[in-house]
Design a protein around this nucleic acid. Structure first.
Lengths: 182, 182
DNA sequence: AAATAACTGAACATAGTGTTCAGTATCTGT
DNA sequence: ACAGATACTGAACACTATGTTCAGTTATTT
């Protein structure tokens, strides 16, 4: 990939992230981004279709990182088998690395887009780990409610960052009826 | 209040609700609303400041209803004391009455605004009922995660409406560790 | 029937969008 | 180091939607 492209892309995302905190997503114009990034207007459009596309790209980038398989590149080493608690802890470590970007995104309506992506990934994760209690709660219900719970837990964590990933994962699992997520 | 105002207001909200399902919130223009409602453009602006204002008004109206004290006007009669389960069931009855409007709002990005209001009200409700487990989970955590869980449960319910309010309240309480919400 | 208040609709200024294109700068491969 | 390819510039343009204004019309209240 051409160095110029990378530079421009970074400038756009950097400017956008700054502006998110300053004025909030809906108040940002393309011109704002272009001015702050110090690039030509047409360059923006050769990288992104629109503001939404930029936001989606940013979120996707973050989630690519956060939900990455957790191979060697992981900050935190997990040797041995992975249960749901480990998996969630691993995700929380990755989230902590991107904390600043995430905080910016969550600071305005753009947070809704972030949360939507997050819930989607979580549903996917839970559907591979969920064990519904015998009493007859639909598995689908548990997955949706669980994703709602964990994603809001993380939003809470971003505002209360004096807890460790292990603690947050613990809070989550301990507040759920034993047996639902083994 | 002048009959004309009521009529115009209803026409605006009706048109808006229809359009929400047809094209989604962000694609709706003021002109769309005005055309559909068959009113003058300036009339719209004498009722609402902007599209956002209209959406907020609509949500507020719904939540005024949903979180109403539950006096005599309630569809479902609760005689005697009210625990959290009863309270949630009562809310679910009210939600079911407004199901169609809610479904329209939830069908596009406007749903995020609805969900935000919903979580806010739920946090308020939980903060008056939450009992955190002794093991040291912060009450604040439980309230946020609980609101995330229940609000997503309701979103799930709107798409799977073959359950009763009692069942949904049951699913919610049963999937949470006993003792947290007594 | 008169006074009041709400709605109409066209006109207007404003702001942001997304595209185009000729010109310039920067990269990449050999 | 050079040539060809590729990316960026920035001004101009057409377009769409916004929000306001106001004189004229219609409905409501007393």
């Amino acid at each position: 990939m051409d160095r110029r492209q990378i530079k421009t892309r970074k400038a756009i995302i950097g400017a956008f992230t700054e502006l998110l905190e300053e004025k909030g997503y809906s108040a940002i114009t393309i011109q704002d981004i272009v001015d702050r990034a110090d690039i030509g207007r047409s360059s923006f459009y050769s990288h992104f279709d629109a503001k939404d596309d930029l936001l989606n790209g940013l979120c996707e980038g973050i989630f690519d990182h956060v939900f990455s398989g957790g191979g060697k590149e992981a900050t935190h080493d997990f040797s041995g088998s992975r249960d749901l608690g480990d998996e969630l802890t691993h995700i929380l470590y990755h989230i902590r690395e991107k904390k600043d970007s995430i905080r910016s995104i969550l600071s305005s309506e753009s947070g809704d887009v972030f949360m939507k992506y997050f819930r989607l990934h979580l549903k996917d994760l839970f559907s591979r780990n969920a064990v519904s209690v015998p009493e007859g709660i639909p598995e689908d219900y548990v997955i949706s409610a669980g994703a709602g719970s964990f994603s809001e837990a993380v939003r809470w964590w971003i505002d209360n960052d004096n807890y460790s990933p292990e603690e947050i994962a613990g809070f989550f699992l301990e507040s759920i009826r034993p047996g639902i997520f083994t």
